[in-house]
Amino acid sequence: MFEQKKKNQIRIMTIISVSMVICLILSAVVGAALGDRALTSGSKGSEVKELQQKLTQLGYQLGTVDGVYGKKTEDAVKRFQKNRGLKVDGVAGEKTIKELKRLTGESQTAEGKKVGYKGNDLKLLARCVYSEGRGEPFEGQVAIAAVVMNRIKSSSFPNTVAGVIYQPQAFSAVDDGQINLEPDETATKAAREALDGTDPTHGAIYYFNPDKTKNKFIWSRPQIMKLGKHIFTR
């Protein structure tokens, strides 16, 4: 009888201790911040969500931001690691998360005052490149972004990135809504180069796919070069 009572007491104590440990772990997971631990395939929670948000912010597609470290998130982490010259293992460890946090931080002045992300035009330009030129070689994608930048410089077009991209009839991917597709990191990289001034087209302001276009006007423009499937013209 006495032994039975002792057994029961031990059982209750065990249950209480285990529950406390579980509670502690759960609270740690729920309140955990990105960087507290290495995240890997199968990880779940707010840290994973933050990781996914940051990857998406940098242009790495991973499907929905759902807080679950699945195959797509692992692939995105691998691509990020590859692009940043890190060890490609698909595990979001200390180095990977540190680099991710650094790159998604705000810009600052000399004395450290935060002044925002400064990436508005880049996002839109990357969408334009992705929707118009996914599947094209990298140089061809830089060229598409360069056409937008050349139009801004030209006196025959609007003077802002959004003004040029959303000009009616200017880009077919805008008219049919593909512009709203999430761009990948290649398109983002191409857009960044063009924003920085790279122009492989030597001043093109139009391009077209010769297999799909019969438009007389576009064929009449002075052609500069063919990159990928597109002919770039002045």
């Binding site: 030209s154 006196s155 077009f157 003004g163």
Partner: peptide
């Protein structure tokens, strides 16, 4: 600048051909 921005929002059949844009942009510059 404002005129060119607004002109670029109106429906068009071809882009980059209008001397209206060019003239206004040049006056702006």
């Amino acid at each position: 600048d404002s005129a060119v921005g607004n002109l670029g929002q109106l429906p068009a059949d071809e882009v980059g051909l209008s001397y209206v844009d060019t003239t206004i942009n040049q006056v702006g510059d």
